[in-house]
Computed example of a mutant assay.
Amino acid sequence: MKKLIAAMLVLLLAGLLVAGCGGADKKKIVVGLDDNFPPMGFRDDKNNIVGFDVDMAKEAAKRLGMEVEFKPIDWNSKEAELSGKRVDMLWNGLTITEKRKENILFTKAYMENRQIIVVAANSPIKTKTDLAGKVVGGQEGSSSIEAIEKDAATMKSFKELKKFGDNVAALMDLKTGRLDAVVVDEIVGRYYIAKKPGEYTIIADNFGSEEYGVGLRKEDKELLAKLQKAMDEMKKDGTSAKISKQWFGDDIVK
């Protein structure tokens, strides 16, 4: 009986070793994203997760020889999802900020973006000064809110700063008149405006520019180096430009 148990343990150990070797050859990256953030990451009419960042992540994972899984998360809890190892990367229009650098390891910036102010097409608001006494919206946990908060004088002039779960909800409230303006990533804002011609206007003023990067855990330096190499190669051989043109009609990759 003891010999049988010993033999079974040997087989079990061998199986684990084989599985371990196989796992080393076939790793998986879990990418955390907001699945309502077009055109960076969102669900199409068949409920598939698609977008510019999704295509970029798929291509990078292929070059790394890894599988990739896209996991929708509460974007307001993104750092907790990353540090808690429920996701391995944040790749979804993630703005590089000094505050986020304290807890997140970033790739080099791959895209530039501005925080634009969107108003209704017939709105009298033309400048940031005109936002005084108005209700302004933005996505909770986003760099849009951070950008507004940095401009303390302008924010203090608002009647109210309303925070939403996603940009879609904020823009819907703008359309119905419950908001006077929405501060949003330019890439996202222009995507929506193009789909709703005549409904919205972008004013000349903005809340500053920023850069997008991919976020990893602070300890994942080796993975960062490999990912950065893959992204650099994608830029060099024109793959990232091709993906960009499919989503934006032009190469806007930095």
Rank of each mutant, 00 (worst) to 15 (best):
K3M: 00
K3W: 07
L4N: 11
L9H: 04
L9M: 13
L11C: 14
L12I: 13
G15K: 07
V18Q: 02
V18Y: 06
C21A: 14
C21D: 10
K26H: 14
K27D: 08
K28L: 13
I29W: 01
F37C: 12
P39Q: 02
G41Q: 12
R43T: 04
K46N: 15
G51V: 02
G51R: 03
D55E: 14
K58M: 11
L64W: 06
I73S: 06
D74V: 12
S77C: 15
A80Q: 15
E81P: 00
L82R: 05
S83W: 05
R86W: 03
V87G: 07
N92R: 05
L94E: 13
I96N: 02
I96L: 10
E98M: 09
E98V: 05
K101C: 03
E102R: 14
M111S: 12
N113G: 03
N113Q: 12
R114C: 05
R114H: 14
Q115C: 10
I117C: 02
A120T: 00
S123Y: 01
I125S: 08
K128L: 11
V136S: 02
Q139Y: 03
Q139C: 14
S142Y: 01
T154Y: 06
S157M: 06
G165Y: 04
M172N: 14
L174P: 07
K175M: 08
D180S: 04
V182I: 08
G189W: 03
Y192P: 07
E199F: 10
Y200K: 00
Y200N: 00
I203D: 09
Y212W: 13
V214L: 11
R217K: 15
K218N: 09
K218T: 10
A225V: 02
D232K: 12
D232N: 15
Q246P: 00
Q246F: 01
F248V: 06
F248T: 03
G249D: 01
